[in-house]
């Protein structure tokens, strides 16, 4: 009899505490929410709206005619669209996987050395800080089939006999683009993983050491599980970025040879601003978002089951 009011009082107190916390939470969310909503809400809704309309530009601005999913119907029937979907998926999956593995190796290396940390950090950030178009122009210059330094070095080292036109055949152009991308964006992965590593307490490692775990066991049982949030984060946002790849093919190949390296973002830009078909162009943009979210979900669930499997 006595305990019941006490219990309910403590529940009530906990609830009111939780309410205070919740309200504080909303207050802390507010500034970000306002800025994001003010800037992105209208453009995104408008873009989805455009994808459901036939858009013409007139002197009065955009004129819409509702067509439902017709623009998406055009996409589904277009070989050009599917080609760029497959290219983009293939490109994103390969580059992100390679970047995650390389990024992990480099982050662990930086984390484990005593010296060179600052230098490594500065060097790591150079590719990431370069303007994307400029880094593409740099690779274009390096890959040039007539005076490029890559051919020169490889010939000097007798790896190749004659100059190779790196950007001239579908296979080598895709690989060349991937190399340029991996060079530029692996640092992104490294920084996320490195800051994740910094958050892991030394005590875990000491405990593992006392338990007699070897280095590999320590990595799989301590580092990897504790880093899984950072790995997922790096993977997720790299997938997002990779699906938007534009500058590299734009500068290096303009989508060529033929249309071998035409990414979704390039096709979207072409349809929007080259061909001035705003409805179909917006439909490409919206489809990209849906596609990326699907890939992200696949990545997250695959990643989750992998981590669970390892730590169980």
């Amino acid at each position: 009899m006595q305990t019941v009011p006490a219990q309910s009082a403590s529940i009530a107190r906990r609830q009111s505490l939780e309410k205070t916390d919740r309200n504080a939470g909303y207050r802390m969310l507010l500034p970000a929410a306002i800025v994001i909503a003010a800037v992105t809400l209208f453009p995104i809704v408008y873009s989805i709206f455009m994808s459901l309309n036939n858009i013409s530009l007139t002197t009065n601005g955009f004129t819409e005619q509702f067509v439902g999913l017709a623009n998406y119907g055009i996409l589904v029937k277009s070989g050009e669209f599917w080609h760029s979907v497959w290219f983009t998926v293939y490109y994103a999956v390969v580059t992100v996987l390679v970047e995650l593995v390389l990024g992990m190796l480099i982050a662990l290396a930086i984390n484990n050395v005593e010296r060179l940390k600052n230098v490594s950090l500065v060097i790591m950030l150079i590719p990431w800080s370069l303007i994307t178009v400029v880094s593409a122009q740099m690779w274009d210059y390096i890959y040039n089939g007539v005076y490029g330094v890559l051919n020169y070095l490889l010939q000097a080292l007798h790896v190749i006999g004659a100059p190779v036109t790196w950007l001239g055949s579908p296979t080598s152009a895709v690989i060349a683009m991937m190399v340029a991308d991996i060079w530029k964006t692996t640092p992104f992965v490294v920084i996320i993983l490195l800051s994740g590593l910094q958050m892991i307490s030394q005590e875990y490692y000491e405990a593992a050491y006392i338990d007699g775990a070897n280095r590999w066991q320590t990595f799989w049982n301590v580092t990897f599980p504790l880093l899984r949030g950072s790995i997922a984060l790096a993977g997720l946002f790299r997938i997002l970025q990779a699906f938007g790849v534009f500058d590299l093919p734009f500068v290096l190949t303009s989508g060529g040879p033929g249309t071998a390296t035409e990414s979704l973002a390039m096709l979207g830009e072409q349809v929007l601003f080259g061909r001035l078909h705003f409805g179909t162009g917006s439909a490409i943009a919206v489809s990209t978002v849906i596609l990326v979210l699907a890939v992200c979900l696949v990545f997250l669930s695959a990643f989750k089951s992998m981590v669970k499997g390892e730590t169980a």
């Binding site: 916390d21 919740r22 453009p43 995104i44 997720l236 699906f243 938007g244 162009g281 943009a285 978002v289």
Partner: peptide
Amino acid sequence: LPIRAKTPMLIALLIISVFPPIAVIT
């Protein structure tokens, strides 16, 4: 903090950052 609808919030944020800039620029 015990705020509601965390997952929808995170997904909404993801959608915003994935939306192609070329589509929102106009």
